[in-house]
Amino acid sequence: MKEHIIEVLQQMEREYDVKVLYACESGSRAWGFSSMDSDYDVRFLYIHTKEWYLSIDHRRDVLEVPSKDSLSIPVHPLLDMSGWELTKALRLYRKSNPPFFEWLHSDLVYYEKYSTLEKLLAIEQKVFSPVTCLYHYVSMAKRNFRTYLLEEEVHHKKYFTVLRPILAGKWIILNHTFPPIKFEVLVKELVPVGPERQSIEELIAHKKARKEHSFQLEPPILVLNDYLQQEIEYMERMTKNMKASENDTSTPLLNEIFRELLEKAWQ
């Protein structure tokens, strides 16, 4: 699949007159609990020509293949690709956008040019805000818990949509750094040996062994529901004690990265 992903990225460059800078896996395959037929959720950064940036008009700053942007070559049905134009990505990086941080920390990198990842990670501590990321993960956990796990019957794979942000948020509270992407690393570090951890490990094993459409409605896992409710309440209390820094020292560095990559991509 990696060869096909690179082929699609290169075809995208030709048809949309852009240069791809970085591409990685961002979904369940990156997190380490993909099913047998999980999609490939490829996320990428790209940069336009110099002329594109010398315009008074704002233009579309995302590419989504094949859902909204077509190519002249076939795209594998399991392939979902979504990319951000570089200045959009850098503005979100400055705001400590957690999904973008997850892209940069992915263990499955498909494509990179011009040392883009190295340049971005070199200033990570200038842009990382524990408070911003924690609020993101707390909100995600609360929303998904209410939406998916409080019925008489639930899809067990939805537990991951609450467990992952819970553990990511807990890592931030304890370490004040961005959490590892691998879910099993978070479980090992943050969930003590006991009934909750056993239930989580069983969920992981079942998720990996089944196809996506094979998951049926089942009674909720009460030990996990209790655990998640307690952790959400704990994280909400902790967010009240954390304050965001208002000092922005990253903008000149981000501008420098943009100009350098623009020059290298089109020299």
Rank of each mutant, 00 (worst) to 15 (best):
Y110T: 04
E231K: 15
H156S: 09
T116Q: 05
R210H: 09
S72P: 02
Y111R: 12
S28M: 07
E218K: 15
E233K: 04
L254D: 02
S38M: 03
L163K: 10
F101N: 05
L54S: 08
I73Q: 07
F44Y: 12
Q267G: 14
S245Q: 07
P99C: 11
D17C: 00
T116Y: 00
E64C: 08
M235G: 08
V8P: 00
Y93T: 03
L149A: 08
Y111C: 08
L120Y: 05
L203V: 05
L217S: 13
L63G: 10
L45Y: 13
S35L: 01
A23P: 14
E15T: 06
L134A: 07
V154K: 12
E102G: 13
G83Y: 07
T161W: 11
I257Q: 03
V154A: 11
I204E: 02
Q229N: 13
E256K: 14
V193C: 03
G83S: 12
H176I: 00
L121N: 10
A168C: 10
K243D: 07
L86C: 02
K188G: 14
R43V: 11
S139A: 14
M1W: 08
K188Q: 14
K113L: 02
K19N: 13
F145N: 09
S26A: 12
H176F: 04
G32D: 13
P219T: 13
H105Y: 14
D107Y: 07
E260Y: 12
K95Q: 15
R237S: 07
E151D: 10
V193A: 14
R259V: 00
D226W: 04
L167S: 09
P66Q: 05
L186Q: 15
R143Y: 11
N175R: 15
Q198Y: 09
V65R: 05
Y40T: 06
T87N: 04
R60V: 03
V223R: 12
A141K: 05
E51H: 10
L163E: 07
E202K: 15
L79Q: 08
A89K: 01
P130G: 06
K19I: 07
L149V: 01
S115E: 15
I172P: 06
N255E: 14
V18T: 10
A30Q: 04
A141S: 12
E212H: 09
N175D: 13
E256H: 14
S245Y: 00
Q230Y: 01
M238P: 03
